[in-house]
Design a protein around this nucleic acid. Structure first.
Length: 850
RNA sequence: GCCCGGGUGGCGGAAUGGCAGACGCUGAGGACUUAAAAUCCUCCGGGGAUUUUUCCUCAUGUGGGUUCGACUCCCACCCCGGGCACCA
């Protein structure tokens, strides 16, 4: 006992607790007994709990450990509660960092990725997370990504995957497309800081997320209460539904010109529109400028605007700029001619890329019209106060729930809401407009001009055009034998063995698509694959998925609140419409945990503030690391890493170990405590009560509140109480001692599973704790958990002036009598009249005196 | 600008209408030891009174309100963090 312990912590022999030995031992036993392997079984209640799959870069740090520990506690508690638990892990293995690292270290992305996966796996196993490792997936393996391709083909068949020209950030040095976050310093390439990024139009593949706009929005309602509100709000904003109308304004005096279609949510203000404003990128702009007197001047301004729009980041603070095209549009409601302008604040990507400016009732329009001296006309008067005067307005009146229309011909006197209905109907009847709902949500561009991703399974044939690769030819395998240099554009495009192929239709020569898929494709459906990870006939067996889904608890970072979760929801709906699954939403309950910070910022390799999981496991053991990440802060909050505090968790586990070590031998062959029959001594009663009360509160902290930190505090308190009652041999029978120590062990099990197993064994159990159930209290036990005597604080005018000890359940009169005898209470209450008494049984007595 | 969080000792945090500061960290003092480590014990929000025992008082970002009673509920404001933002 108490020899040198082998950990570095504290530097000396604390107890016989040797986490390295204990943890290795139980991890081996769990693996041998296949404890965490589960199968779909409709006769059992299921629980699918999942942590977001990691991108394996480098080695896991304590941020990862915290995330997976939270998930592991949930999985283990549910197992102890009798659920058939699915708890898998895998790797988000495609992506740009692997390519960059490969270029830097002249290796292959696969080598770099697989090394990292091995490292991650080692550390995750070291922490004893209860994963079913048989279900492990790696998204860069053909066995996985062939199903990305398969899904893509199904979407292609249904018109949900299509090709279109789209504007991208292009670095002429990299010869490739850059993501928005790779455009830095006001439009320069992140790798070539002296190179200006160009805006180019290239053909790209898109998935039609917009086909599901309404469902993606409406189904958020199902998630209320089980998803964090802010995630729901972020998704709502992202989808950005907007109800309004599209209206066509003819261009006056320009033969053959298409009318300009504008989008507005306030068709009721159309009599107040004093200009039509086009986005700089609007196709009509060039045409209008051709015949314009101000052509030269205008083209200069236009070029400046179009270039400026590349710098997305300072768009928000930009001054409103614009110019007159020299042409006029005709308001279809009153046939008034209004000038056509170009304005930098009108976005081509939203609505129709053209607006009607109603300066009196839209702040942006007002600013623009004031700047350029355009007319302002009031068409809605507010219900009270001074009537608006166009000349004096500095703030637009944009309330649409109140007011009455003026200066609006036949619509005068209507409320804006009535006017919207009537005017939309009129526009539809006259066929120059219609009511329409538009969304901010755009289709999902999935093309990436990169190597390390899923090849898009189509070929281009001179004769047959775009031809889908047949299912029987899947997967289209990423060529392994390539050399990455980072120069010269798409690597796949310059690999002839990959590019050159034959057309599946005509057998003639054809070229393969060389774009690969966005890695968000991989993560959009990976959790389905876990249900049937090695199926080589289909992405998964629907029966298995229908058993396990939806995911009961999904745990991950807030950074995935929009894209990953939105794409996953989209994918789910597509799969449902393909008949593969039954549910409409993949994730029943979502939890977003806080980050682990060091020096106030998230741990990251580039900042050099990482605390490695491996390092902590070596120094303190996995259980201490797990316990600390749970204890230091509630799981939803950020956690500032502290090397000093973790010592406290280490000390606590040693304290528990020593306690049970001291009693184990004497208790190994002792039977269970008989709650009903045997009378208990005062000391026994007190210990049992404390134990059961702790259990009740810990259970609620685990199940309903997720307050792991206070659950641990409660178990610490219990441990302190037991120590305070030592030596237990005096006055506490062995079977009672056993009851108390076993309960403490079981309560720790989800958080520090290795230690708990060891203690369980020391207490004489030959079958593992993994077979044990979470303890429920029987009727007699609940009775024992109740207090016999309570101390009731007595307040006088809301301030505590004394306390009285009474039997639990004592009545008001008895408590009052004792209270008045208390010197502190008497001092404040004597000689005064008691106006009111508030008595809460077993909790409080408050005397209001005058 | 709009929408979410959050603000409690030296620090992490607990208490969701009923004794504010549980539990832990740090710090101080003590016991054990040749010594150290480990372990164990005591103290640890501010101010005041009383001195050796307790009492009073202030205190949960600020100011109001509701209530017998507010960290907790309501109103206004300040500060910090995050998200969205010419979205027509």
């Amino acid at each position: 006992m108490a020899e040198q312990n082998t950990t570095g912590a504290g530097g000396g022999g604390v107890s016989g607790y040797d986490p390295q030995k204990v943890e290795a031992k139980w991890q081996k036993r769990w693996a041998e007994a296949r404890v965490f392997e589960s199968e779909a079984d409709p006769s059992k209640p299921k629980y699918y709990t999942l942590e977001m799959l990691p991108y394996p870069s480098g080695t896991p740090h304590m941020g990862h450990v915290r995330n997976y520990t939270i998930g592991d506690v949930v999985a283990r508690v549910k197992r102890m509660r009798g659920f058939n638990v699915l708890h898998p892990m895998g790797w988000d293995a495609f992506g740009l960092p692997a390519e960059n690292a490969a270029i830097k270290n002249s290796t292959h992305p696969r080598t770099w990725t697989n090394n990292n996966i091995a490292e991650f796996q080692k550390v995750l196993r070291r922490f004893g997370f209860s994963y079913d490792w048989r279900r492990e997936i790696s998204t860069c393996e053909p066995e996985y990504y062939r199903w990305n391709q398969w899904f893509f083909l199904r979407m292609l068949e249904r018109g949900l995957a299509y090709r279109k020209k789209s504007r991208v950030n292009w670095c002429p040095k990299c010869c490739t497309v850059l993501a928005n976050e790779q455009v830095i310093n006001g439009g320069h390439c992140w790798r070539h800081e002296d190179t200006l990024v160009e805006s180019r139009e290239i053909e790209q593949w898109f998935l039609k997320t917009t086909a599901y706009s309404d469902q993606l929005l409406d189904d958020l309602k199902q998630l209320e209460g089980t998803w964090p509100e802010r995630v729901i709000v972020m998704q709502e904003n992202w989808i950005g539904k907007s109800q309004g109308a599209k209206v066509k304004f003819a261009v006056a005096d320009l033969a053959g010109a298409e009318p300009i279609e504008i989008f507005t949510t306030r068709i009721d203000t159309i009599y107040g529109s004093t200009a039509v404003i086009l986005a700089p990128a609007h196709p009509l702009v060039t045409r209008l400028l051709k015949g314009s007197a101000m052509r030269v001047e205008a083209e200069g301004k236009l070029a400046k605007m179009r270039q400026a729009s590349v710098k997305a980041e300072d768009l928000a603070t930009m001054e409103k700029e614009g110019f007159f095209t020299g042409w006029y549009a005709v308001n279809p409601f009153n046939n008034e001619k209004i000038p056509i302008w170009v304005g930098n604040f009108v976005l081509m990507e939203y609505g129709t890329g053209a607006i009607m400016a109603v300066p009196a009732h839209d702040q942006r329009d007002l600013e623009f019209c004031r700047k350029y001296g355009l007319a302002v006309r009031v068409v809605v008067q507010p219900p009270e106060g001074e009537p608006l005067e166009a000349e004096k307005m500095t703030t637009a009146f944009d309330e649409h729930m109140q007011g009455k229309l003026v200066n609006s011909g036949p619509y005068n006197g209507l409320s804006p809401l009535d006017a919207i209905a009537k005017m939309t109907a009129f526009a539809e009847q006259k066929v120059f407009g219609r009511g329409e709902t538009i969304f901010r949500l755009k289709d999902w561009g999935i093309s990436r001009q990169r190597y390390w991703g899923t090849p898009i399974p189509v070929v281009y044939c001179a004769k047959d055009g775009i031809v889908a690769v047949p299912d029987s030819d899947l997967p289209v395998i990423l060529p392994q034998d390539v050399k990455l240099t980072g120069e010269g554009g798409s690597l796949l495009a310059s690999t002839p063995e990959f590019v050159n192929t034959i057309c599946p239709k005509c057998g003639g020569p054809a070229r393969r698509e060389t774009d690969t898929m966005d890695t968000f494709v991989d993560s959009s459906w990976y959790f389905y694959r876990y249900c049937d990870a090695h199926n080589d006939k289909a992405p998964f067996d629907s029966a298995k998925v229908n058993y396990w889904f939806p995911i009961d608890q999904y745990i991950g970072g807030i950074e995935h609140a929009i894209l990953h979760l939105l794409y996953s929801r989209f994918w789910c709906k597509v799969m449902r419409d393909l008949g593969l699954i039954k549910h409409a939403e993949p994730v029943a309950r979502l939890f977003t945990q806080g980050m682990v910070l060091r020096g106030g910022v998230a741990m990251s390799k580039s900042r050099g503030n990482v605390v490695g999981g491996e390092e902590m496991a070596q120094k303190y053991g996995a259980d201490t690391g797990r316990l600390y990440t749970l204890f230091a802060a509630p799981p939803e909050k950020d956690l500032e890493w502290s090397e000093e505090s973790i010592e406290g968790s280490w000390r606590f586990l040693n304290r528990v170990y020593r306690l049970i070590e001291r009693h184990a031998e004497a208790l190994a062959n002792v039977g269970n405590f008989d709650f009903g029959r045997s009378a208990v001594s005062e000391k026994e009663r007190e210990l049992i009560r404390k134990t059961y009360q702790t259990l009740q509160r810990v259970t609620s902290d685990f199940e309903t509140r997720w307050h792991f930190n206070s659950a641990i505090a409660l178990i610490m308190e219990l441990t302190n109480e037991i120590y305070a009652q030592e030596p237990l041999e005096e006055g506490v029978r062995p079977e009672v001692r056993r009851e108390i120590l076993e309960m403490a062990t079981l309560m720790l099990a989800p958080m520090t599973p290795h230690l708990a197993e060891e203690l369980w064994e020391m207490l004489g159990h030959s079958d593992g704790l993994w077979n044990a159930k979470w303890p429920y209290l029987g009727v007699e036990q609940v009775q024992l958990s109740q207090n016999v005597e309570v101390e009731i604080p007595v307040q006088v005018n809301g301030r505590v002036r004394g306390r009285v000890k009474v039997a639990a359940g004592a009545g008001e009169e008895e408590v009052l009598k004792l209270a008045l005898a208390d010197p502190g209470v008497a001092h404040h209450a004597n000689g005064k009249r008691i106006v009111k008494k508030i008595f809460v049984p077993d909790r409080l007595l408050n005397l209001v005196v005058s």
